[in-house]
Amino acid sequence: MSDRPLYIEIEHASKAFGEGQKRNVVLRDFSLDVRKGEFLTFFGPNGCGKTTLLNVIVGVESLDEGSVKMNGGTSRPRVGYVFQDYRGYLMPWLTVAENIAFPLRIRGVSKPERMSKVEAVVARFQFRIDLGAYTYALSGGQAQLTSILRALILDPDILIMDEPFSALDYQTNLSLYEKVLQIWEATGVTILLVSHDIDEAIYLGERTVFLTKRPASVAAVLESKLPAQKELTQMGSEAFASMKKQALEIFRREALEKSA
């Protein structure tokens, strides 16, 4: 992994909202390096400031202190975003194809060109999805797949997934894990995935970053011991069990004991 160049450097990042009594520190002295093409997962207690962290990384939110450097500060990377509330983030008045093409439309791409790009991205990952359907008619899994394709349509350098699987059932999640891993392997995109599910976080991530309670900082980073070629059966392996044990210890120390 160390052969891949540094891509995102977050140094001593701090961020607070509000003033005086209502001042709420969300990030405190947060430092993290991400390498190009890395699959990084974040795991932490609810409301610890994960969304703020993601917003800071994509540049929607500015920092009070510290810095975020992308790609050595040379160019702004293209970012694709997948949200948890897929229904709320898709446009029900547009077809699946037009939802996927929405970022292209923003960039003034003509309709025929948009449609051919959509067909190309669907074909590339061999997804089965009804492009002419409206999103309200889709199952949760298909709707989230639409959001993932929308995030991929601009060929992003970074794919940010903010609890993408939290609202879906287990079976759907397993099939989406495979699709996300397939996308990651095929494109070499850097993935930052926030998860609520410890199994999901350590299965998917090459590294899992454990966050402290608010204000968020890095509690620990767990390197994956799973083989590079992932298979769902590995969730039953000994390596997985030992990682999970470590993860639970970190989580107990950070989330449970420190609040006691």
Partner: peptide, 13 residues
Amino acid sequence: KETRLRAARVFGA
């Protein structure tokens, strides 16, 4: 819906 506005904004609208 705030979420849809945000979706459009993060994609650069």
